[in-house]
Amino acid sequence: MTYTKEDYSAQTSTLCTGCGHDSIINHLKSALLDTQTPPHQIVKISGIGCSSKTPAYFAKGAYGFNTIHGRMAPIASGVSLASPELKIIGLSGDGDTASIGLGGFIHTLRRDTPMLYIVANNGVYGLTKGQFSATTDVGVPTKNGFKTQTADPIDLCELALNLNCRFVARSFSGHKKQLTEILKKALAHDGLAFIDIISPCVAFANHDPSTKSYNYVKEAQTYMNELDFISEETKTSTELKLKNISIDISDSTVGDVINHSQSLKKQGYIPMGFFALKESSTKKQIKKTKNYIQKEAFSGLLNKYEVETT
């Protein structure tokens, strides 16, 4: 059975024209098509927010669950334990995961729930019209200029790395080739594959000096490491400003990678690429066997509570 492009399509997006999330979904569709993931075996799960609307926009034959704000992670953990054979794709945003959902996110990383976990990161609450999120950078004002973010942002990739996540990456919605390749690799990962995708919000966070606007990201992005699938054609000076490749994650410690990420950020760059990419030797999944209690065993249990009449 060969799945076609049609199998991975669904209803038209209702997001703003130019929204980064739509690009992410297009790249996801390509990745699914290339990997031929059976749509009926896909669970597409989300929280609440603009990015959480996206399950309706791909793979109409998949099983979708638009849950509640900040709770996609634990609910996905439950789905995964119940049906470990299904491919879970979790779609969330920076508000949904880095603010309200942070606790659930951290513990789901500890559990290493097998799933593809995407955060469409635009540094803003889009659906409620422009408030700060926990990933809004210091000094960035709201679109109307009324307030400026003063609290430090959360770097979800560094956080995931700290929690020993074995697949951590950051990308950009505008990078078709790179993001599609990262997604394909993520779909093949056996644990939790986390991707922080900068996804500009044209309505509320595309203004200067938002650090998640199209212009800013294109200028500031840089690569943590050599990605063998970044071909020469994408390395144009107008698209990317590559620094010299400096870290080989295969033999770096968590500390090394984080230091590297932070030094790049200090220089004004947005580190992209892989933070972690590790295979696992221990399978954490639970084997589902149908082993129900037998009548005799149940009677044996009842005997424990019995009052012995002398």
Binding site: V43, R71, P74, I75, G78, V79, G103, G104, H107, I293
Partner: peptide
């Protein structure tokens, strides 16, 4: 009794009920 049920202690009640819901949804 070596049965195949899974008992999992979640990090809080929100997660506990969330996981229960997810597993129920999945059948």
């Amino acid at each position: 009794l070596k049965l195949s049920a899974t008992i999992y202690q979640a990090e809080d009640e929100i997660s506990a009920v969330g996981m229960t819901l997810g597993a129920s949804w999945a059948g």
